[in-house]
Amino acid sequence: MECRITVGTPDGDGGDPAGLFRWLAQDPDVRSTAQLALMPAQERVGDMGGAFEIINAVVANSLALSGVAIAAASWRETRAPRPTVRIQCAGVVVEVDDDSPETIARITHALSEAARAGARTEPGQDGGAAPDTAPGAPGRRADARPGQR
């Protein structure tokens, strides 16, 4: 399963995706279960270019995805102000709001279900949407915040 991870801050800054990438790459569980790459984001008008803003993570299963979500949530908790971490897999986008077990379980469930649905449905057929492939492309949103669905 291929996922994209982006980082942002309340003031619209790009956050620190390189910092999150280093954190994930140094986590022994993530390093052993995920392939990571730092990718350039889609350039916007006025950008100087060359900025790496998207982390591409390839994981084999929901357990590996859970490890990535836990590590991303832990990294987020070490930053002030807390950046927004978004994980997008199979067209579903979730926000990592905290590192509680409930939040990690909701994130893993939402993304795993989307990946399973994507594997069962051909792109463009009724009953399932094709995964978005362009950086920053809008996708279905699964809110993983505590107390919301």
Rank of each mutant, 00 (worst) to 15 (best):
Q42W: 07
E43Q: 06
E43C: 03
R44C: 10
V45M: 15
G46W: 11
G46A: 10
G46M: 15
G46P: 06
G46R: 14
D47C: 14
D47E: 13
D47Q: 13
M48K: 11
M48T: 07
G49R: 04
G49W: 07
G50I: 12
G50H: 08
A51S: 14
A51E: 13
F52V: 10
F52R: 15
E53V: 07
E53I: 05
I54K: 00
I55L: 08
N56L: 13
A57F: 04
V58Q: 15
V58D: 15
V59F: 11
V59Q: 09
A60H: 07
N61V: 07
N61S: 08
N61H: 12
N61Y: 06
S62N: 00
L63A: 11
A64T: 00
A64P: 01
A64Y: 03
L65G: 03
L65A: 02
L65R: 03
L65N: 00
S66L: 09
S66F: 06
S66T: 10
G67E: 01
G67M: 07
G67D: 03
V68H: 03
V68P: 05
V68Y: 01
A69S: 02
A69Y: 01
I70D: 11
I70W: 13
I70M: 10
A71D: 03
A71R: 04
A72T: 01
A72G: 03
A72L: 01
A73L: 05
A73P: 01
S74N: 14
S74R: 15
W75V: 01
W75F: 03
W75Y: 05
W75C: 00
R76L: 08
R76Y: 07
T78E: 07
T78R: 10
R79Y: 06
R79C: 10
P81A: 06
R82Q: 12
P83I: 05
P83G: 00
